[in-house]
Amino acid sequence: MIERIKKLAPEFIEIRKCIHENPELGLKEFKTAKLVANKLKEFGIEVHENVGVTGVVGVLKKGKSNKSIALRADMDALVISEASGVSYASKNEGIMHACGHDGHTASLLLAAKYLSESDFDGTINFIFQPAEEGRGGAKAMLKDGLFKKFPSDYVFGYHNIPSKTNKLFCLKRGAMMAGADALRVNISGIGGHGSAPEKASDVMGAMAHFITQASLITARNIAAKNSAVITFGAALSGNETSFNILQDKALLLANIRTFNSEDRKIIINQLENIAKSCEILFKVKIELEFIQIGAATINDDEAQKLAFDVACELFGEQNCDDNHEPLMGSEDFSFMLEECKGAYAFILNKNEYYLHDPRYIYDDDTLVNAAAFYSGLCLKYLK
């Protein structure tokens, strides 16, 4: 299988470079989606476009079995100015495939090509998802009835991972990646002069108190054996001339990461309690806006075993890890796993720069390995 996929790979390496050179942001992947749809049609695969705005689903059915499996790749790029120095660097200023979604898309197309020429008994759904990078692509496809229109027994996804480990393939049972929420804290009150604080609200004091109290939540409310993180990324109020002004508004931006829904509820509840106390102490009004970017990515036991068995057959058990340390990063593939059993894996990318670095480049050896993994899953399950 791997040798055949290697022979097919050059065409798809060029496709990856084309996608890399022409990156598109989430829900605007019009050219990428059209390229994907045209290639799938070329392989004789039934194509459904505009699933979740710019999503594409290819359906390949052979034989008489009712068994089905879904494979997913994401297509969107990031707001990053590229500094990789490659000949096919981004032509779109300030936008770059710095996370390898160009390779994810190309590897799933390579798997589709290989599987279109293979014998199996059942249905394969090739899911090309838009907007993984925080713009709601998975939810958009699910809202469009993804697994109702394209029912699947299992769904599988992967992400390339630059790592110093010698393991080629990694996954684990249970939580693979954390869930993530963005938080906006809007604080408003009565502004005033620094010489008469009793006549105004203390918006700045409320902002400082909220940050310090929120920073204690995980230490005092989350079990020590669990992992959770609250990070404040911005505190905005006043300007560089505001020496004697009591501000009338402030904005805090934060990120929350947890591995289970119970811890997420605890953190949200405690943040709401802190907001109420700040309102009383500092004579302000506080509004909290939680935006769920991704749930925790939880692998199904059956799907995890199938994925690991296939990986061991392809790459050798010594090159595979079935107990990888869970990452605090998040992935909206998690929403698909809430509706369909499945598993998410990491496949080694031999690159010295990590994801979201402007110098990052997807390694095309990963493209071959990922296509082989996806193909092996389908042929093992639909034999």
Rank of each mutant, 00 (worst) to 15 (best):
I80L: 11
T297N: 13
L27P: 00
Y88K: 06
A70W: 01
S84H: 03
L109W: 05
A224M: 14
G85N: 04
L348H: 15
K341V: 02
R135H: 06
I267F: 06
P162Y: 15
A196G: 01
A250D: 09
A175Y: 09
L236R: 14
L252N: 11
A178H: 04
K164Q: 14
S227C: 06
I5M: 02
E338Q: 13
S188W: 00
N50F: 12
A228T: 11
C99V: 04
D364Q: 05
T165Y: 08
N244V: 09
G145M: 11
C170G: 11
A228M: 08
R264T: 09
E279D: 10
L27E: 05
K350L: 05
E198S: 10
D119R: 06
F169Q: 11
L78R: 08
Y353T: 03
S65H: 14
L377F: 00
N92L: 01
N66W: 07
F147P: 00
N226E: 14
K249P: 02
N66P: 04
N186S: 13
K31H: 14
G294R: 03
A345F: 02
K164D: 15
F120P: 00
K283F: 02
Y114R: 00
L382V: 01
V203H: 07
K6E: 15
Y354D: 15
D181T: 11
V284W: 08
A73M: 07
A138T: 05
N166H: 13
F232A: 12
C312R: 12
F308C: 02
P358H: 07
F128P: 00
N260G: 07
N349W: 03
L60A: 11
I286D: 13
I361S: 10
K143E: 15
R16S: 10
K276A: 14
D181W: 10
M176N: 15
Y88I: 04
H209L: 10
S330Y: 02
V79E: 13
K143L: 12
L115E: 06
K7D: 09
E117V: 06
R184W: 12
H193C: 05
L246T: 06
L288T: 10
A138P: 02
C170K: 15
Q318I: 09
N186V: 07
L110V: 04
I361N: 15
E29I: 10
A303L: 14
H101E: 08
G134Y: 02
K285I: 05
A131M: 06
G294C: 15
T123N: 01
D74K: 01
N226I: 01
E317Y: 07
A37G: 03
H324V: 11
A70Y: 03
D309P: 07
H104T: 10
G134A: 01
G342C: 10
N166L: 08
K64E: 14
T105H: 06
M336K: 05
G342Q: 08
I361P: 00
I211E: 06
E93S: 13
K148G: 00
D153S: 10
E42T: 07
C378D: 01
G316P: 02
E352I: 08
K67W: 00
L27N: 12
I2D: 11
S242P: 02
G44N: 09
L306V: 05
V310C: 09
C170L: 14
R220M: 03
